[in-house]
């Protein structure tokens, strides 16, 4: 006589036994897969760590031009140190940057010559091309008087547009640390400006100096920009603002008035009103 219950139990045991190898194989495959995933992630983290190690080398590249400028112009380097000091006060991020700059300076002393990275400048120049003008006129005031036609202001790039190329998108190539080295940028741009007299570069320098509170420098570079191209509204505004900040409010008003009469710029008019009313100090 068959015992169904006992047979069913034996059958269940048999089924479990027959599936055991498959379960073991499945588990071992899972273990192998998870181990390989862990190993891969470890490898990736190692490679990213090595990327981070490369960063100081990159900064050294950036530092090299500073060294050259330093040797060429002692005056400018003294200004640079001044600027760096003021930056520490104004911006925390900048502060961090400067500490790294100092560190990298020390490293650069020890390191062999490194070539500068010109990617940033190349991008800058690309964005600059449409605004480049060769017609240089020495006297700003004369230009103002002689000028009859007013060029389109809309083509002048905004601040963001000019600064934008600084931030490169490196999402594809692992971790890349972006650093805002304003001082370096300024000196590089000054260097470039001295070579090609591009008004966009001098305007950028003027704006940067203005942002850093270096109004004397900002005034100088705005003046240089106006001398090269008298139709850049932003340059005139920076010029006037710097004058106000330097305590030459009257000159700022008179200059702006002349410019507003000539260009009918809304922004310039607004600034003029603000200066007059004392809103802008």
């Amino acid at each position: 006589m068959l015992n169904i219950r006992e047979l069913e139990q034996r059958w269940l045991r048999y089924k479990i036994k027959s599936y055991t190898p498959y379960i073991i194989i499945g588990i071992s495959i899972l273990v192998i897969l998870s181990l390989s995933v862990i190993l891969l992630s470890k490898q990736e983290s190692n490679s990213s760590a090595s990327n981070i190690k490369k960063v100081p080398v990159k900064t050294l590249k950036e530092q090299e031009p500073i060294k050259k400028i330093k040797s060429k112009k002692k005056q400018e380097t003294s200004q640079k140190s001044k600027v760096s000091q003021t930056t520490i006060k104004t911006n925390q991020k900048e502060k961090h940057t400067h500490t790294i700059v100092n560190e990298s300076k020390q490293q650069a002393m020890r390191k062999v010559q490194l070539s500068p990275s010109l990617d940033f400048m190349r991008k800058m120049q690309d964005s600059v091309q449409p605004y480049y003008r060769n017609d240089r006129e020495p006297d700003m005031k004369e230009n103002q008087q002689k000028q009859k036609r007013y060029p389109q202001q809309s083509s002048i790039p905004t601040k963001e547009q000019i600064i934008k190329p600084q931030v490169t998108d490196n999402t594809a190539g692992g971790i890349d640390i972006q650093r805002k080295n304003t001082q370096n940028d300024i000196y590089e741009i000054i260097q470039r400006f001295e070579k090609n007299n591009n008004p966009v570069l001098s305007l950028f320098v003027a704006k940067k100096y203005y942002e850093l509170g270096e109004y004397r420098e900002a005034y100088d570079y705005a003046l240089k920009t106006n001398n090269i191209d008298k139709n850049i509204e932003e340059s005139w505004i920076i010029f006037a603002k710097s004058l106000v900040k330097l305590g030459r409010r009257d000159k700022a008003i008179s200059t702006l008035r002349t410019y507003v009469n000539y260009s009918h710029s809304g922004n310039a008019r607004n600034l003029l009103e603000e200066i007059k009313s004392g809103k802008f100090k």
Binding site: L7, R10, W11, K17
Partner: peptide
């Protein structure tokens, strides 16, 4: 399979 277990054709 139960029959096979019973007649001894499957070792369970």
């Amino acid at each position: 399979e139960m029959s096979a277990i019973h007649v001894g054709l499957i070792d369970a």
